[in-house]
């Protein structure tokens, strides 16, 4: 577990935990939440509370009649043996990518098909539903991501290394939740490339002219 090695300082927000518990977040956000929880016991416990609230909300709904043969049909479904849920994901030993992320990427940092997005930064867009997008970012040690604002919500989870922006320092396991009001220039710390998982539900807004042109090509 990551928790032994690092102290996580920046956690998921309550709306994110509640949205994950309720099953109402875009897939891209669910991936960031599930990945952070794989690294953070505090948020795992908080999620359990939100799920308990969900259970009681469900218990409180007016029951609806099920089909007359529902129980028999369910037992038949069980007997058919064709109905099995997939097991929870696991992390390959020593991988930087926690279990949920390993369902989306095959290989490790150096074997991935990174695409350069300028300024030394590379990315790998992961395939999810279209309501939001998520990518891995690789920011070389000491490098800055261009100054930008946000149209919606941006979640940035650090998997390796660390970055610092106008808000604070974010190390492995930390998640930064940026909204419309935040304009920032994340800079990767010296020593190690910073690998982040970043999800957005709206395009970022770059402030310099050149990055704005680049935006059309890189699609963020």
């Amino acid at each position: 577990m990551m928790n032994d090695m690092t102290k996580i300082k920046h956690h998921l927000t309550e709306p994110l935990l509640m949205g994950y518990a309720a099953g109402t977040l875009p897939e891209a956000f669910n991936l960031v939440v599930a990945t952070h929880i794989s690294m953070c016991d505090d948020c795992r416990a908080a999620l359990a509370e939100y799920e308990a609230v969900g259970g009681e909300v469900m218990m409180d709904t007016a029951p609806v009649d099920v089909a007359e043969d529902a129980l028999a049909a369910t037992l038949a479904l069980i007997d058919s043996g064709k109905f099995a849920d997939k097991p929870a994901p696991r992390r390959t030993k020593d991988s930087v990518f926690p279990g949920p992320l390993q369902d989306y990427v095959t290989g490790d940092i150096d074997s991935l098909k990174w695409r350069k997005v300028g300024g030394g930064v590379s990315q790998l867009v992961l395939k999810t539903s279209k309501d939001a997008s998520v990518r891995l970012l690789r920011i070389p040690a000491g490098t800055a991501v261009p100054d930008h604002g946000h149209r919606g919500t941006e979640l940035t989870l650090v998997l390796q290394g660390a970055f610092t922006d106008e808000e604070d320092r974010f190390g492995a396991g930390d998640v930064e939740v940026a909204n419309e009001d935040l304009n920032h220039t994340p800079v990767a710390e010296e020593g190690m490339d910073c690998i982040c998982l970043a999800a957005t539900d709206a395009p970022l807004r770059f402030n310099g002219l050149v990055p704005r042109i680049a935006q059309r090509f890189i699609g963020i």
Partner: peptide, 21 residues
């Protein structure tokens, strides 16, 4: 509830469903 929530994402929302380790 969590089983029902998961099934809701699978069937109603037709999304993949990342789960924590």
């Amino acid at each position: 509830f969590t089983i029902a929530r998961n099934r809701k994402i699978d069937i109603l929302r037709k999304q993949r469903r990342p789960e924590p380790e």
